[in-house]
Every structure is written in structure tokens, then in C-alpha cells.
């Protein structure tokens, strides 16, 4: 089930938001221990549609609207998970982690280790990430590297509906805490400009996509472009545009933890050229970790220096011209590929 998505194939095409809520519904039907908790996850269906339709099917006892008490309800999710339930908890915006990070990194992520493996925390903590619509500094960050830096959490960030459904099913079945980050731009929201790739073919039946395996949605031989989440859609647009002139291999990491280092190394060994596209902050993050992965293994596999298209080390600005100055865009990706091909 890890084949690249063919958005034109199959009968049914749905948004990423619908794909996520469908995965949760299927897991809830299969397992009475699965429940959903968070702000506006009930009748509203999640601010970004991740829990659409669940309240109607499962009711208020399994789809619980919480007060604005992130420390309280994330902690409650941990407690329920410790007792063997499988909560899916929504934090809404990743930017809100500051009010509840202790529960996340000191409790959710560490209890299994601190207990010497005797206690499991099978919990999904999902949240929206990303910008591009002028929501400014406190509602637009990605921050996957922040979670990935702390041991004990898997960190998943799908780029399309098919992967989102299969990764959510895997996340709920996983015995570990899983941070599930959906970029607002990939959700296919009716109230936000979207890439056509945010709506795609999704099987109605249950399936899983393994956490920790990258996908290669656009194979190529000249240059490796590694990305994750929303930026993958931009990379694919550019790769398709360059077909016939440059053969671009796009790697969609799908998860930051575990990081599929083998997929990156295998591709760079083949192309010798690496572009990294990351909407999270440039310094001390995913793009640096990928460069370190190459350097640790064999720096000589690179024919040219690495090109990083990452978020500059500035808070996310509000004005459209300022925000797009900072965001990874198709133009920047194309320019980075051109620079890598020059060497």
C-alpha cells in the first residue's frame, strides 16, 4: 500500500481532511478503546475538518469537546492511554504547544522509557501546521523538528489524502505516541486556496501506510529533492514542469521520526545532487539533519553543495509579501534545482 498516489485513478476522490476523519472513524468502529478529544472536534468537526462527521456517528461520549485546557486534556489523553485506551487528541494549531509542552515532552514522550518499557502510551496527538494565508507568527509554524528533537515521539506529516488516511490508521494502531501534523494547505479546505493534490483518490476500505517509510512520488535520476508535508506538493509541481529537461526525484519523507535515512542516501547515491525543501525553520532542524545524514555516511556522494530551501530564521510575518518572501515556493525550488544542476 505504499505505491505513489495516482490522483486520476480510482472512482472516489476526497480531501485530506475527509481522508483523516475517515481513518479515525474506521478505527473507532473497529476498536471501542479509540476516542477523540480536543477543542471543537465535536459538532464543528475540527477547525480544519479532521474530525468531520465523527460526532454525528459516535456521539459526545467518544468525540469529546474539551475546554481550552491543553495541559488538562492532553494529560487526560496520556492517562487514558496509560490505562490502555487509544485517544486521538487534537491540539488545533501546533503553535499552541507552548501552553502544554510539559505534558507532551516530559510525560507523553518519556513515560514508556522511564517505566523501563512497562507502560505504553498509545496516543495520537494531531494538529494543524503551516502558513501561506497570513495567519502570522503564532498560527503558521511547522515545528516538526521541535518534536523530532525530543526522543520518544513519532512525528508524521502527510502531503496528500491517500497517505493521510493510511498514516492515521497506522498512528492509531501504534503503541507509541504519534504526533500527526496536517498542513492546512493539504487539507483541501473549502475556505483556503489549495493545490489540486490536496484532493485525491482514496480507497474506501481500511488500509495502512507504514510510519517511517518515505515515498518517491516522482522518480528521477538527475537531482534528489527531499521534502515533507505541503512542500511536497510544490516539489511535484516543479518536477512535472521540468520533465524533459531535468529528471527530478522527489522524496516525500511522510514522517520526520522515524526518518527514512536509507531512502535519502539511496537517492543521493544515485543523483549526487540534493535539494531539501522544508517549511520548518532552517537552523537546527530537518534540513540540517538530512545534510548530516549524508555527511555521516559519505560526503563524497555529493557532486555539488546541498541546496536548502527552508524557512529563514525569522518569526512568520503577517503581510502577504513578507510571508511569501520567507515561504518555500515553486520559484525558489526551481531555482535551487537549477543551482544544483549547474555544479
Amino acid at each position: 500500500m505504499t505505491a505513489p498516489v495516482d490522483v486520476e485513478a480510482g472512482a472516489r476522490r476526497v480531501t485530506t481532511a475527509k481522508a483523516i476523519s475517515e481513518a479515525i472513524a474506521q478505527e473507532m468502529r473497529a476498536n471501542p478503546e479509540v476516542f477523540v478529544m480536543g477543542e471543537d472536534v465535536g459538532p464543528y468537526g475540527g477547525i480544519f475538518g479532521s474530525t468531520g462527521g465523527l460526532f454525528e456517528e459516535f456521539g459526545a461520549t467518544r468525540v469529546i469537546d474539551t475546554p481550552i485546557s491543553e495541559t488538562g486534556f492532553i494529560g487526560a489523553g496520556i492517562g487514558a492511554a496509560v490505562e490502555g485506551m487509544r485517544p486521538v487528541v487534537e491540539l488545533m494549531f501546533v503553535d499552541f504547544l507552548g501552553v502544554c509542552f510539559d505534558q507532551i515532552y516530559n510525560h507523553m514522550a518519556k513515560i514508556h522509557y522511564e517505566s523501563g518499557g512497562n507502560v505504553k502510551v498509545p496516543m495520537v496527538l494531531m494538529m494543524a501546521v503551516g502558513g501561506g494565508y497570513s495567519d502570522a507568527a503564532q498560527h503558521s509554524q511547522c515545528l516538526w523538528a521541535t518534536f523530532a528533537h525530543m526522543p520518544g515521539m513519532k512525528v508524521v506529516a502527510p502531503s496528500n489524502p491517500y497517505d493521510a488516511k493510511g498514516l492515521m490508521a497506522s498512528a492509531i494502531k501504534d503503541d507509541n505516541p504519534v504526533i500527526f501534523m496536517f498542513h492546512k494547505g493539504v487539507m483541501g479546505l473549502p475556505w483556503m486556496a489549495k493545490n489540486p493534490r490536496s484532493i485525491g483518490a482514496v480507497p474506501e476500505e481500511e488500509y495502512t501506510v507504514p510510519i517511517g517509510k518515505a515515498a518517491i512520488p516522482h522518480p528521477g535520476t538527475d537531482v534528489t529533492v527531499v521534502s515533507v508535508s505541503m512542500s511536497v506538493q510544490h516539489c511535484l509541481d516543479v518536477a512535472e514542469k521540468l520533465e524533459g529537461t531535468t529528471s527530478v526525484e522527489v522524496i516525500d519523507l511522510r514522517s520526520i521520526v522515524p526518518l527514512d535515512r536509507e531512502a535519502i542516501l539511496a537517492s543521493v547515491a544515485k543523483t549526487g545532487r540534493l535539494v531539501i525543501v522544508d517549511e520548518d525553520y532552517r537552523s537546527f532542524g530537518l534540513s540540517g539533519e538530512i545534510v548530516a545524514t549524508i555527511a555521516d555516511k559519505d560526503p563524497s556522494m555529493l557532486k555539488v553543495p546541498v541546496q536548502r530551501v527552508a524557512y529563514p530564521d525569522i518569526p512568520v510575518p503577517y503581510a502577504r509579501v513578507l510571508e511569501y518572501e520567507a515561504l518555500p515556493t515553486r520559484d525558489k525550488i526551481e531555482a535551487a534545482i537549477a543551482a544544483a544542476m549547474k555544479g
Partner: peptide, 21 residues
């Protein structure tokens, strides 16, 4: 069903979740 936490007050929400279960 015993656990403890070195972070002040932060074990309390976890007990709420155990009670929820």
C-alpha cells in the same frame, strides 16, 4: 496503577485521564 512525575502538578491531568478510562 502507580506512577509519579518530577514536574510540579503535571501528574494531575494524567490521573484525570486514568479516571476517564
Amino acid at each position: 496503577h502507580f506512577s509519579c512525575s518530577g514536574i510540579i502538578a503535571q501528574g494531575m491531568p494524567v490521573a484525570v485521564g486514568q479516571a476517564l478510562a
